[in-house]
Write a protein that binds this DNA or RNA. Sequence first.
RNA 1: CGGGGUGUGGCCCAGUUGGUCUAAGGCGUCUGGUUUGGGACCAGAAGAUCGAGAGUUCAAAUCUCUCCACCCCGACCA
Length: 477
Amino acid sequence: MSKLEKRTITKQSEDFSQWYLDIIREAELAEVAEVRGCGIVRPYGLKIWELIKAELNKRIEDDGVENVYFPSLVPIENLEMEKDHVEGFSPELAVVTHAGGEELTNKLAIRPTSEAAMYKTYAKWIQSYNDLPLRLNQWANIVRWEKRPRPFLRWSEFLWQEGHTVYATEAEAKDEVQKILGIYSDIYKFMSIPAYCGKKSESEKFAGAVETYTVEVMSRDGKAIQGGTSHYLGTNFAEVFDVSYLGADGEKHFGHQNSWGLSWRSVGALIMAHGDDNGLRLPPNVAPIQIVIVPIFKDDAGKTEVLNYAQKLKESLKEYRVKIDDKPNQTPGFKFHYWELKGVPIRLEIGLQEVSGDKVTLFRRDNNTKEIVLTSDLKKRIKELVVEIADNLYQEAAEFSASHIKRIESWDEIDDSQVWFEASWSEDAESEKKLKERFLMVSRELPLGNENKKPNNKKCFITGKEAKHDWLFAKSY
RNA sequence: CGGGGUGUGGCCCAGUUGGUCUAAGGCGUCUGGUUUGGGACCAGAAGAUCGAGAGUUCAAAUCUCUCCACCCCGACCA
């Protein structure tokens, strides 16, 4: 019973929201900042983001995108140039009104996204079709004064990557939208999370976009998290900022633009997709520490022997992120719990038993099981396990997601149980509003595979009118 | 912006019909010692102008007023 009292994490089944906050605090990922809605991301939490970032950066650079950096302050009139854009973002703008001890004549917004910050410059850089395509990306901080912040998922200030590209033709631009969507989906797979790719409805798309594509992932409480978006902007912004080029035909044309972004919200998705009642469960790809070695000893003689052995093991595992937890005055049991809470995928327990037997006791966090491995087999076993753990977490999440999407045919089948559902929909905006009002659910996406497919049911599940496609709906964060 | 709630050592919190409160307890921290195979134990220590201001009173963490901050449920939201 005394052990139960030491539990510092609320059970998922009791209060998922509290569980999430507990994990973030106890696993030392982040804490609430002095400024409302902002978070302080601690080293362990930031490292997870940096591992995601490194992988994503590599993929987009491999695809030919270059990194760039624009200022975080944007003249507010730039933001006001595109009508839908300003309507979408003005409520959540943070504005700088004073600087240098004086009131500014031209107010500056802290970027809520960078379309308006970048495209005037794009207009200068692009003169002819020979300057296209222009494919740039920036890693940046963003400020959006949301009414209801949430750690990682919706902080007032957050870090993300935003790609901004310009093509001569619609077809090329739309190709890229899909390619980026694929990269985002791969990034979630890199985190052992299945992503559902699809297109947003009219009401849910990005302010100023022609089309928004999204990757949606499922949290373990059955809610949806928008994991990244890839927008085709058409010539909406190009016409406003004069992003135009002289074509081979000698005529002026507007560029076809895309923007796409993925933020550290993905860290929140990672926590919610894999975490359990004992804490985080990190896939090896994004684990700040992939292997933790816990030495166990009784006296000074044993201590030296065990620590030497641990050191040797660490050196033999150089290709992994390995930590030896040799803190004195903490019992092995304490350390086991601590590193399980932090989600370290593999733990090696080493005591005199292991040293004398030339073996290690290995614990894997994904399924919480132990096995004994001969030291001679350790490298091979770990190489297998890194893959096995990632696959297992992916499988588990995929099965969970799939089993929590149900097909429904009519409004009457919807209940308040918070799971996703698929239904044939008329795509009528009013009906979506009605769904939101009654069940707090909205359309999540028109799945990629359903775009060119007839709906399963000819009748819309809300209006009874003609259905256009099969859509996914869910409550979301 | 509506509805609800909370502010007490680094963290969780007890105390709120005003009076041994000179503010209790747990976690953590520090010192010494014993320990270390699933959240160790003993002894000692440090650490709080009780969210802020004003007021009532012999007496305020406790009552009154004003303000501030944060959290939760919504509205809003790549």
